[in-house]
Simulated assay, not measured.
Amino acid sequence: MVANLLAYLVQLPASRLLGPAGYGEFAVLLSAMLVMAVPALALQSVVAREVVRGADRRGLWRLIAVVTGVVALASVGFAAAMMGIADTAAGPAFAAMAGAAPLAVIAGGQGLIQGDGRFGLLGGVLAGVGVLRSAPVIAAVVLGGGSTWALTAGTLGTAVAALGVGALAVRTPAVRSGAPAAAPSAVLWASGVQLVIIVAASLDLLLSRTVLSADDAGIYALGAVATKAAFWLPQAVGVVVYPRLADPVRSTAALRSASKVLAVIGIAVTLAAAAAGPLVPTVVSPDYRPVTGLLWLFALTGAVLAVLQLLLLAAIARDRARGGIPASLVLALEVVCILAYADSVLSLAVIAVLSALASVLVTWLWIELSDRS
């Protein structure tokens, strides 16, 4: 909760002090970092699983090193790609993507701590990492730095956090069985569903600077904060219900009940966003007035994506390896629609919410058909 709160707290000074154009660049690169964080999220899951199985710690550290090296190389190419895709300058693009490799180290260390069952320490680590990643960004923006300096500060904070988490993770109990660690390919396969989820939640923002003006992209980026909030807020629902989703006897009932909970939360968040919309010019800046009447639409998109995340978790729990394919096809269609038809904040937001609804529909149908076969 501390880490997520700080991540959103960054948006307030950034949106006020960077201006719509600068904030648009800043926000789209933060969203790009979510894509680069996919291998890290998968790495933590694989490492934690292997620790429980008693894998050799030296092998796990080698796995962390390999994934970190691959991510570091990929981040260079991704930074160059973002310059063309999102029309960003080289400085902020490379400053942002440089944080991907230390994030993999953090994830690997958290996986070791999680696998050992040291949850008190893990909670402290998550909060500490959140502070180290967010506080430097806030300080850089408040001191008058532009998007390049803000993103550089965040990367430096992430690097410091990686050193700290690594030092804590090294202090592990003795190896239990010394079983061979998982191969890097395990992380690759584990990244599949994570990638679908993250891309679905970020695609519209990633392409916003391609189809909108710099100012409109900044306005859209502020609206997308409501999308992210509505998406991440009910994440604990999936965590709690996951064991029941994996139980063949209770899976269907659990999926239906969890979907109802997410629907209630989504309606509440959407209504709250509609009520909060008129406050945007006062709380943030008059420059963002065009988003006041659309904030509910952004929140609705995030609420629908939260349901999609639950459905993909259900596919994983039921050992449906191809569960992300239907949503992936919708994402491909969403790219085409954005590039062809999105020419305003409203049109891009409408395409995003319709794509989210379509993803939920096709994934739900795929799960139902899989259960009958």
Rank of each mutant, 00 (worst) to 15 (best):
R176N: 08
S177E: 15
A179M: 09
A179C: 06
A179T: 08
A179V: 05
A182L: 10
A182K: 05
A182R: 07
A183Y: 07
A183G: 12
P184C: 10
P184F: 06
P184A: 12
P184H: 12
S185R: 13
A186Q: 12
W189I: 09
W189S: 14
S191E: 11
S191D: 08
G192W: 08
G192A: 13
G192S: 08
G192E: 08
V193K: 05
V193G: 02
V193T: 14
V193I: 15
Q194L: 05
Q194E: 14
Q194W: 06
L195A: 15
L195M: 13
V196E: 08
I197M: 14
I197S: 12
I197N: 11
I198C: 05
I198M: 14
I198L: 11
V199I: 13
V199D: 06
V199T: 12
V199P: 00
A200E: 05
S202Y: 00
S202C: 06
S202L: 01
S202V: 01
L203A: 03
L203Q: 09
L203T: 03
L203I: 04
D204K: 00
D204N: 08
L205P: 01
L205G: 02
L205W: 00
L206Q: 08
L206A: 06
L207T: 00
S208C: 09
S208E: 10
S208R: 03
R209H: 08
T210Y: 13
T210M: 13
T210Q: 15
T210C: 07
V211W: 07
S213K: 04
S213N: 09
S213H: 07
S213C: 05
D215K: 02
D216V: 02
D216T: 01
A217P: 04
G218Q: 09
G218K: 03
I219R: 15
I219A: 15
Y220W: 07
A221Q: 05
L222I: 03
L222Y: 03
L222P: 01
L222K: 01
G223N: 04
A224R: 02
A224K: 01
